[in-house]
Amino acid sequence: MLMKVLLVDDHELIRHGLRRSFERQDDFEVVAEAGTMQEAVRAAADFLPDVVIMDVRLPDGTGFDATRAIRASHPRMGIVILTMYAGDEQLFAALEVGASSFIPKDAPADDVVDAARHAVAQPTSFSAGDLAEALRRRLNPTGPHLTPREAEVLRLLAEGLAVSGLAKALFISESTTKTHIARLYEKLGASNRTQALMSALRLGLLHNPAGQGHSP
């Protein structure tokens, strides 16, 4: 039994190239093509493909919207999102609308075919080449970057020093110290010392007093 494929892309050339790649396999059959979001949703209902290859940018909407619409009525259909756009937002958007897989358009056609096969087998799981890295980036958001001086000010603040004490310890004037403190508060989104220390602890900045910035 052949796996039925629906190709969605507003560029005929791309559909053509992918069609050849799928037809070369002996377990796939391209049953329909669509160039718009509306056509895609209709074709998914009419042809009940096993897997949809979905472009992100469509003339009448996005592939994400189309995926959401298809997923609502076909929970077991495999959907592979194919995109030209870079950036983690795209990947997480695909995850959110219920796609089964996410492939950038610079990947070879075989990757698309493999992703389609995987999507048919496990339509409700999600796979993407960069998924682990993207998740790691999202879990460790690039928090505020402190300059070495600010990191030092933070450490001294945590030790409970007053502004005058800080100024002495750092050999700088009190007004400069105050400026550093103001910037530190701003970066940490705090309006007083307690808040600043709390958010610094939460962000892990206090375990790393040298700061995250490295100078060459």
């Binding site: 560029h11 050339l13 791309i14 053509h16 190239g17 992918l18 050849r20 790649s21 070369r24 940018r57 030209m84 756009y85 358009k105 610079d106 070879p108 056609a109 075989d110």
Partner: peptide, 22 residues
């Protein structure tokens, strides 16, 4: 760029993949 040259290059890539496989 997205709708023009980029898509054409992607097509050329797929076409090459097909040619290599065949």
């Amino acid at each position: 760029i997205h709708d023009g040259i980029a898509q054409e290059l992607v097509y050329i890539g797929y076409a090459l993949d097909n040619a290599i496989a065949e």
